[in-house]
Write a protein that binds this DNA or RNA. Structure first.
Lengths: 161, 161
DNA sequence: GGCGGTCAGTTTGGATGTCCAACCGACTCC
DNA sequence: GGAGTCGGTTGGACATCCAAACTGACCGCC
């Protein structure tokens, strides 16, 4: 994916959306992450029409997010599995899920829970943290890209034009 | 957004995608988060066709992600600003941006930088963390939804069907 | 006053994407 | 033999998408 070829601002966000931004793509990845590897299960879980799903899965395999793995030869059948890139997409799905729980869903249909020794079972409150310094990213000052543009860090303070 | 009305598995992820999953929507939010509040600036930054952008912005305002704020009356002009829901979307954009940098972009077109007292200026090495317990979420055990289905936590261990 | 430019869209016609129902071949189960 | 499963493909109707041109209200300049 050549970032420079994308329309608009050259940005990895646009590149990511090019690969997984089409309709049903992220839902298909969710189903595979949940352990549904077969075409019909993914179709049922997402509600996507079968022809659209077929096109999306092919594209996701081409993009390196999913891989096909045969599980039967008699009639040749293969399931879809996450690649490393696909597994790396799970935090993205979690972030969108949490946002949807808070702002899109009428009621928390599905809740992310977490169980740790220190805090027992608790609802997940996800945030991005910088592994180098341990600080949350949301508090970062906007900085400059190589091209000298401001860039995603904190939504910049409102400028009252 | 009634989760039960969505096709497929009732899930806040689907609800979220219903609001911000259409083409150009997240890029438009990115532009507003970067401080571009005017229609033409958003069009330039995203590269979206103007009619599509017009439709998306209207939908995002209806969804409560953006709000219009007048800044001129002579020809009536208003800019787009983030609501609380829109600001909450920033971690999602960061998640996709970091994923895109790693898996989608040919070269790191845009780099997240971070400046803190302890570590000076350094590239961001983002990790998705639970704010309640401080543990990384990627290691979380999958848990059950109210309806008794498994749910997004860790991609479940491969079951060799 | 006339000229060009900005701004936030809308309009146009044609390309592309999406949906749905039906169908298919190669199997398995009863 | 008949029904069902599985992973798709096909066809046709419909919606969305696109680039480019257009609108109409303003603004600054000379």
């Amino acid at each position: 994916m050549r970032v420079a070829d994308l329309p608009g601002r050259p940005c990895s966000l646009a590149a990511a959306l090019q690969l997984v931004g089409e309709r049903w793509a992220l839902l298909a990845v969710r189903e595979v992450a949940l352990g549904n590897h077969r075409f019909s299960d993914i179709a049922r879980g997402t509600g996507a029409p079968r022809d659209r799903l077929s096109a999306r899965l092919t594209a996701l395999v081409a993009a390196g997010v999913l891989e096909r793995r045969p599980y039967a030869t008699a009639p040749p059948r293969s399931g879809y599995h996450l690649t490393a890139a696909g597994r790396d997409l799970v935090p993205v799905l979690q972030a969108l899920l949490l946002w949807g729980e808070r702002w899109a869903a009428d009621r928390p249909a599905v809740r992310l829970h977490h169980e740790t020794a220190g805090h027992g079972d608790h609802p997940v409150d996800g945030t991005w943290t910088c592994r180098t310094c341990g600080e949350p990213l949301a508090g970062a000052r906007p900085t400059l890209t190589p091209a000298g543009r401001t860039l995603l860090g904190l939504p910049p303070e409102e400028d009252p034009r």
